[in-house]
Design a protein around this nucleic acid. Sequence first.
DNA 1: CTGCTTTTAGTACCAGCTCATAATATCTGA
DNA 2: TCAGATATTATGAGCTGGTACTAAAAGCAG
Lengths: 191, 191
Amino acid sequence: MNSTRKLIRHEKLQHLLHDNPFMTDEQLAKTLKVSVQTIRLDRVALGIPELRERTRDMAEGAQAKLRAIDKKDIVGELIDLELNKVGISTLKITPDMVLEKTGVARGHYMFAMADTLALAVVDAQKALTGVGNVKYKVPVYAGASLVAKAEVTRRRNDKYFICVKIKNNNEEVFRAKFIIVSLDDERKQEE
Amino acid sequence: MNSTRKLIRHEKLQHLLHDNPFMTDEQLAKTLKVSVQTIRLDRVALGIPELRERTRDMAEGAQAKLRAIDKKDIVGELIDLELNKVGISTLKITPDMVLEKTGVARGHYMFAMADTLALAVVDAQKALTGVGNVKYKVPVYAGASLVAKAEVTRRRNDKYFICVKIKNNNEEVFRAKFIIVSLDDERKQEE
DNA sequence: CTGCTTTTAGTACCAGCTCATAATATCTGA
DNA sequence: TCAGATATTATGAGCTGGTACTAAAAGCAG
């Protein structure tokens, strides 16, 4: 078979580019001991774009990812908010949020989601989580669409008592109670 | 002044490239209404590399950053570990971990640090956080070097009771208690 | 040997530059 | 007002890392 060599080379090519996407056709040709033209044909056959395009794609994709991580700062998407009363947010569990060993979502994503939402419902310029009390009821796996609901259950001066429940498909998977301390110097003590 | 225009253009140039680093000299020349050569001279003067180099730098840098974020998966650096007994980890609070409004570190970093460490000390292939109980004692600001210490306080079958204390400069800033459930099918029930 | 795929070679062309050299344009101080 | 400095534009050669196309050579199978 003549084409087995080709197939092997294609695999090697993909491997090489996976390890180091910054290789030129010339370098690839040298390491695979074929001509540059063969590499070009292989790239076309495999749908691999040229070095510059690969580089650009990475740069753009990376920017997007970094922005996504910035957005992760919100930890979830706020979809409803009644200040000092209730708040609702959603969060999609992606494969990179799970523990490798178990495939279960890392606990602190739920915690962060709940914490962030709890802080959001508190109508204060500056607020800090004081204490938290969390319970993981059901393991969550990648792909889950979580919905968190936070309710202010009590308020005493600068302290807010907040209960957050996270559901996946109407099944409660997580529950937390927070005491959040408002650091507003004076400001609204009424309402 | 002849050079004020130049200075203004330099600023605009940097701004433009900050917003969109993928602009060619030609595009820049058109938007700034000067010749391509002027743009080149400006770039040289400002030490701004050409489009391709910028793209490549971004792609490489982004890879590094993404890897760093992967590492963040550990949330802290494990520096000592006695399985089923104690574990110690460190975490440096960087400016991107703080709330804009207050400059205080977001609570879930400490939570994640504690949770991760708690999971690490449990000598099980698969383990899950069951319940947690956290208390934020002192606000933490950027630059803080946190040290977390986790101790297994009790163990009942597949349940581990773990206490985690986080200190900043010997001052306890955070404390948490976890109950972690081991999911090991059978395996070590001794030790 | 013939026909097929595979590989290599060569040419023309492109974007997006660098580098060097020169010509204008613009301003500035005496 | 005019020489001299500074800024801008123009021009051309050369580079990298390709694409697109054509054609020749090599390898192998029936």
